[in-house]
Simulated scan of single mutants.
Amino acid sequence: MSASPSSSEFEHPDLGTLQQAILQQVRDRGPSKSICPSEVARSLGGHHWQQLMPSIRQAGAALVKSGDILATQQGQPVDPLTRQKALSALR
Score class of each variant (00 low, 15 high):
residue 9 E to G: 00
residue 37 P to G: 08
residue 30 G to R: 07
residue 75 G to P: 02
residue 75 G to D: 15
residue 4 S to I: 05
residue 77 P to Q: 13
residue 5 P to D: 06
residue 78 V to C: 09
residue 12 H to T: 13
residue 62 A to R: 15
residue 90 L to M: 14
residue 53 M to P: 13
residue 87 L to Y: 04
residue 29 R to F: 02
residue 66 S to W: 03
residue 90 L to P: 15
residue 75 G to T: 11
residue 56 I to S: 05
residue 23 L to E: 06
residue 42 R to M: 13
residue 73 Q to L: 12
residue 37 P to R: 14
residue 85 K to V: 14
residue 34 S to K: 06
residue 52 L to H: 05
residue 26 V to W: 02
residue 88 S to Y: 06
residue 57 R to D: 11
residue 59 A to D: 06
residue 46 G to T: 01
residue 54 P to H: 08
residue 21 A to R: 10
residue 29 R to I: 12
residue 8 S to V: 09
residue 7 S to R: 04
residue 89 A to H: 12
residue 1 M to C: 02
residue 33 K to R: 13
residue 13 P to Y: 01
residue 20 Q to N: 11
residue 71 A to F: 00
residue 91 R to D: 15
residue 39 E to S: 14
residue 36 C to G: 10
residue 63 L to H: 04
residue 75 G to K: 00
residue 56 I to K: 13
residue 48 H to W: 03
residue 9 E to P: 00
residue 39 E to Y: 07
residue 49 W to I: 07
residue 6 S to E: 03
residue 61 A to C: 08
residue 34 S to C: 11
residue 70 L to M: 14
residue 32 S to K: 05
residue 15 L to N: 11
residue 54 P to K: 09
residue 30 G to S: 09
residue 46 G to R: 01
residue 36 C to F: 12
residue 1 M to Y: 01
residue 16 G to Q: 09
residue 31 P to E: 15
residue 67 G to W: 02
residue 60 G to C: 11
residue 60 G to R: 13
residue 34 S to R: 06
residue 84 Q to L: 14
residue 27 R to D: 12
residue 37 P to K: 15
residue 39 E to D: 08
residue 71 A to C: 09
residue 12 H to K: 09
residue 9 E to F: 00
residue 16 G to C: 03
residue 62 A to E: 08
residue 23 L to C: 02
residue 67 G to N: 07
residue 58 Q to Y: 08
residue 51 Q to S: 11
residue 25 Q to I: 06
residue 64 V to H: 05
residue 47 H to G: 06
residue 9 E to Y: 00
residue 69 I to K: 05
residue 38 S to T: 11
residue 37 P to T: 08
residue 50 Q to R: 10
residue 27 R to K: 13
residue 16 G to T: 04
residue 80 P to T: 12
residue 21 A to M: 03
residue 35 I to N: 06
residue 13 P to C: 02
residue 67 G to E: 01
residue 28 D to R: 14
residue 15 L to P: 07
residue 16 G to F: 01
residue 35 I to G: 03
residue 74 Q to Y: 12
residue 30 G to M: 08
residue 31 P to I: 10
residue 4 S to L: 05
residue 83 R to L: 15
residue 88 S to H: 12
residue 29 R to E: 09
residue 88 S to A: 13
residue 47 H to N: 11
residue 10 F to K: 00
residue 77 P to S: 11
residue 42 R to E: 14
residue 3 A to M: 03
residue 84 Q to P: 10
residue 82 T to R: 12
residue 78 V to T: 04
residue 34 S to W: 07
residue 18 L to W: 02
residue 65 K to Q: 08
residue 81 L to A: 09
residue 46 G to I: 02
residue 79 D to C: 02
residue 47 H to S: 11
residue 30 G to I: 09
residue 6 S to K: 02
residue 84 Q to F: 13
residue 68 D to G: 14
residue 20 Q to A: 09
residue 49 W to F: 08
residue 8 S to F: 01
residue 58 Q to R: 11
residue 61 A to I: 05
residue 1 M to E: 03
residue 34 S to N: 11
residue 87 L to S: 06
residue 70 L to R: 08
residue 30 G to T: 09
residue 23 L to H: 07
